[in-house]
């Protein structure tokens, strides 16, 4: 079998990646032929802006400086770019709260503090799971199981918490919005938690719960929503494909030998990326057959990142022509492009 992807020159980062779910975010700045990457290291976010050939890059680091300075600087759980029609924002979630920055990390436009107890409790407090939904919403998950919906104006810092969705009982792990760009679909958002429960939502002034897909006692660590299909990756190394509205299980794949850390989808081609603690990155292809209302999954490619527990993997473009990978203790972003 011919190699589908080959390794390119890596992009160094200032400090190594922490073992956190979905610990890589990618934003493509087409007009300037740049790609922005973020990788979380403990209480710091590494930002890199790189040319498309990966040969030129510049760095910036964001600290989780928040609230008053006498409190400790908290650990960051996730950093992700949120692309809304009117603006792009960089969203950071931590033990203390949620920070929203302009996409280049220059200005913090919004800060939402979490309810943190005076003395630590047995249940940790943090925010995790970030998704931009439709025209103006950014949704963020919380360790209590709540999903916070923020209403984001087309410019300025007048961001408001418009709704709190209370359907999950366990800590939110990940969230994803419909990424096909199609407005026909009914489902806009899917949220996942530590029990494996998936909630499917329709956005609007009031978010509407469309469906609850029960878990099977294992964490769903990463989730995607594409053309009405929920793609979920679990702690058991399985990937499952569900029809969002009905919860019908279309496919189940024993994909990885250890905990899956991240999934990504190239919306234009239906290529699916999965990566796990087992040091494997796999590429799959999804195809829909509307007549029979079925989804097929086909395995395309394996890449082993030797001796690396992978924590982030993302396509760099909508076709899945290139992807990037991060791993625990690695101070680089490894890039692959189609041969």
């Amino acid at each position: 079998m011919a190699k589908m992807y080959h390794k390119e020159k890596s992009i160094p980062i200032k400090s190594s990646a922490s073992a956190l779910y979905n610990n890589l975010s990618v934003l493509r700045i087409a007009p300037r032929c740049l790609t922005y990457f973020t990788v979380v290291h403990a209480n710091v976010v590494n930002m890199v802006s790189a040319s498309w050939d990966g040969l030129n890059y510049s760095h910036r680091q964001l600290q989780s400086k928040e609230g008053n300075v006498t409190t400790s600087s908290s650990l960051i759980m996730q950093a992700a770019w949120c692309v809304l029609p009117s603006r792009d924002l960089l969203v950071l979630t931590s033990q203390k709260g949620i920070q929203m920055y302009e996409s280049d990390g220059s200005i913090m436009v919004y800060w939402h503090a979490l309810d943190t107890p005076e003395t630590p409790t047995a249940k940790a407090v943090f925010a995790r799971g970030i998704a931009a939904v439709r025209d103006k919403y950014i949704c963020v998950g919380v360790s209590s199981g709540s999903v916070l919906v923020f209403d984001v104006p087309s410019k300025g810092s007048n961001i408001t918490l418009s709704e709190v969705l209370e359907e999950h009982k366990e800590a939110i792990t990940d969230m994803a919005s419909e990424c096909s760009g199609s407005l026909e679909g009914i489902a806009d958002l899917v949220s996942a938690d530590d029990s494996g429960l998936l909630c499917v939502w329709k956005s609007g002034e009031d978010f509407q719960l469309l469906n609850k897909i029960p878990g099977f006692d294992t964490s769903c660590s990463s989730v995607k929503l594409w053309k009405g299909t929920v793609i979920a990756g679990y702690g058991t190394g399985q990937i499952r494909l569900y029809e969002a509205i009905t919860g019908i299980l279309h496919a189940e794949v024993n994909a990885h030998a250890r905990w899956i850390y991240t999934l990504d989808i190239a919306p234009f081609t239906g290529l699916l990326l999965s990566a796990a603690e087992d040091s494997w990155v796999r590429v799959w292809h999804l195809s829909l057959t509307p007549e029979t209302n079925s989804v097929e999954i086909e395995h395309m490619y394996n890449e082993c990142v030797t001796d690396t527990q992978i924590c982030g993997a993302k396509f760099c473009d909508g076709d899945g022509y290139a992807f990037a990978v991060t791993g625990y203790d690695l101070s680089e972003i490894i890039r692959y492009t189609q041969a």
Binding site: I248, L249, V253, N254, A257, R258, H299
Partner: peptide, 17 residues
């Protein structure tokens, strides 16, 4: 060996509605 509760990778199963 894979972890307890995990299946060795390789199997893909498709289901009808």
């Amino acid at each position: 060996p894979v972890p307890y509760g995990t299946h060795a990778p390789g199997l893909m199963r498709m289901f009808s509605c």
